[in-house]
Structures are given as structure tokens and as C-alpha cells.
Simulated assay, not measured.
Amino acid sequence: MAVPSTQSGLRPSVLAAGLIGVAAMAAVDEVVFHQILGWHHFYDRATQVVGLLSDGLLHAAELVALTGGFFWFADLRRRGALVPFAAWGGFLLGAGVFQLFDGLVDHKVLRVHQIRYGVDLLPYDLAWNIAAALLLLAGALVTWRAARRGGG
């Protein structure tokens, strides 16, 4: 396996794993909060049927992203261009991006759903968005370190 150069492998490694991170966090959200806990659907501003349909569409999108991300990841690995440490950073960044987008845009701007209904939202919103910030910070730190180490 060839040693990847920072120029050729760092950015694609971060992006491929970032796509996987977005899809993985979407899957965690859907499975835990939509299905197991039943706290909300992706779109809660209509009927139960529309809410279930929106969950199915979210699931389909996360599967497409997960599949595409893993094909991209496998191709980088096959070509010897994968930078594993940078990929971990990308995964964390992708998970954090999904979490923050969901917490700010879906919950607050578009108001397509809330984390939970019938409770004080502040603790849930704080936990959700702080978790997103921590994922983003960890991902940025790992990615920065990968770049400083020359991609290795």
C-alpha cells in the first residue's frame, strides 16, 4: 500500500468519512429518537402518516449517504490515498455537522420537529447542541493534527 500524500489524500479522506459521519448520526437520530423512544418524526407538522413517510425518506437518504461514503472510502483505501487519522476527524466532523444542523435548522429555524414534546426544551436543546459542538471540536482537532503530521 502506498503512503498517501497530504495533498492527494487528506481532503478526500476527511470528506468521505464526513459523509459516513453525517449518515451514521442521522441513523442514530432516527433509530433512537424516532423509533425506540418515539419522541418525534422527521416532520411533525402534519399527520402521523406524513411523519412516518418523512422518517422513511430520512432513512433512505441516510442509506444512500452511507453507501456512497463507504464506496468512496473503499476507493481511497484501494488507491492507497486514504489517510486514516484524517478520516476519523472527518467522521467526527460529519456527525457534528448533522447534529448541529438538526439542532439549529430543523429544530429552531424550520421547526419541522422538536427533540421532544410536552417538556421544557431548554435542557434537551442544550444537550443536543453542546454534543454537536463537542463532536465538531473533536473532529476539527483530529483533522488539524492529521494535517500537521503530514497526513499520516
Rank of each mutant, 00 (worst) to 15 (best):
V28W: 11
H40S: 00
V50F: 10
D55F: 01
F71G: 00
W144R: 13
V109C: 08
P4N: 09
V119S: 09
A146W: 05
H41E: 09
V49S: 12
A86P: 04
A26F: 00
A146R: 04
A86S: 03
A26K: 05
L141N: 08
A74Y: 04
A95S: 13
G94I: 03
D29E: 14
W39P: 02
T47F: 06
G89Q: 01
I115T: 12
A131W: 10
V109K: 05
G9S: 09
A65S: 08
Y117A: 11
V64G: 00
V83Q: 14
F33Y: 15
L93T: 07
W39A: 09
L63A: 11
G38P: 04
V50E: 06
R149C: 03
D55K: 02
A87W: 01
G151E: 03
L122R: 12
M1F: 13
W128P: 08
F71R: 11
G94S: 05
A95Q: 05
H113L: 08
K108V: 15
G51N: 08
S5D: 00
A46I: 05
R78A: 15
F98H: 06
L66V: 05
L37A: 12
V119C: 04
D120M: 12
H107Q: 09
G56E: 04
D125H: 13
S5Y: 07
